[in-house]
């Protein structure tokens, strides 16, 4: 019994406590569940989708939801459920990969700039400013022209644009944190700079970072739709939620279900992400009450 308690004591950490707190937050759990479900469905789509994504039935045309086609068909007679499932693969992948790229680069860049300060900070932040100043469409078009159209490159390109704001947010947080006495105390314990950044600085920047991340994922998904619309991203017959919505808008008056179903799916994802993000932010802050 004593041994067990000792083990528990040792395991007690921010992340463990955060998980305990998160598991009591039903809204956040709902968000987590929805996202997990979407991810699983996307992974299994090739095996469970009722039709092929490019299976057309021009005779059928656009039909309202029915027993054969639960979410209806589009003007080429393609099954909407199938297209939304395939679209989710692209959208979720763009959302998560591009955001992860932005997250990693942004947090590290901002943390280092803010922590080291001085000239290093000035140079690093001027680079950010220059990147901001580049019109990002031209940047992405250039990348596409030079390296050819490649879905992975698209992820990287979007990520490479989205990290800028993250870096600024993290830097300002870190600058106020590094003056705090607990960081000085860590110095006087002899901890190395990297250990201090990892153990004392980054955990304290998590709140705004998580909130910004949950805001980045949807904006990245919409960015992909925009690029695809311009012919720079995904091309039909492949699909993504953003593209489906774009086409849905065109035929909104005649065939509303072409807009409603992809729209509802995207909104549901965004809600789930926001609930999860807020839950994580609260869970990772020990100062919010435990209940």
């Amino acid at each position: 019994m004593d041994r067990l308690q000792a083990m528990e004591e040792k395991g007690s950490s921010l992340w463990r406590d955060a998980w305990i707190k998160l598991s009591k937050n039903y809204l956040a759990l709902f968000g987590l569940g929805v996202i997990a479900l979407l991810c699983i469905v996307s992974l299994l789509t090739p095996w469970i989708a009722p039709y092929g994504y490019e299976e057309q039935n021009l005779m059928l045309g656009a039909t309202a939801p029915s027993l054969e086609h639960w979410l209806g068909t589009d003007i080429f007679g393609r099954d909407m459920l199938t297209r939304i499932m395939y679209g989710g693969r692209v959208s979720l992948m763009v959302g998560f990969i591009a955001t992860a790229v932005a997250l990693v680069i942004g947090v590290l860049w901002g943390a280092i700039a803010g922590f080291v300060g001085g000239r290093v900070d000035a140079v690093m932040m001027r680079i950010v400013d220059i990147m901001y100043a580049l019109p990002f469409m031209i940047f992405i078009v250039l990348l596409m022209v030079v390296f050819g159209r490649n879905i992975l490159l698209l992820f990287l390109a979007i990520g490479a644009v989205e990290w800028l704001t993250m870096a600024r947010i993290v830097r300002s947080q870190v600058m106020s944190l590094r003056k705090q006495e607990f960081v000085e105390a860590a110095y006087s314990l002899g901890l190395s700079q990297w250990t201090i950044i990892r153990r004392h600085i980054i955990p304290n920047t998590l709140g705004p970072v998580i909130v910004y991340t949950t805001l980045t994922i949807p904006s990245v998904m919409l960015l992909e739709a925009f690029l695809s619309f311009l012919g720079l991203g995904i091309q039909p017959p492949e699909s993504s939620w953003g593209l489906l919505i774009n086409y849905g808008v065109e035929t909104m008056e005649e065939y509303p279900w072409l807009l409603i179903f992809p729209g509802v799916t995207l909104s549901l994802t965004l809600f789930a992400l926001n609930f999860l993000g807020d839950g994580l932010r609260d869970a990772l802050d020990p100062r919010t009450s435990k209940d």
């Binding site: 006495e181 955990p203 802050d285 020990p286």
Partner: peptide
């Protein structure tokens, strides 16, 4: 200010 708010006493 001298204690990291996200670390337990332990």
């Amino acid at each position: 200010a001298s204690l990291n708010p996200r670390m337990t006493v332990y």
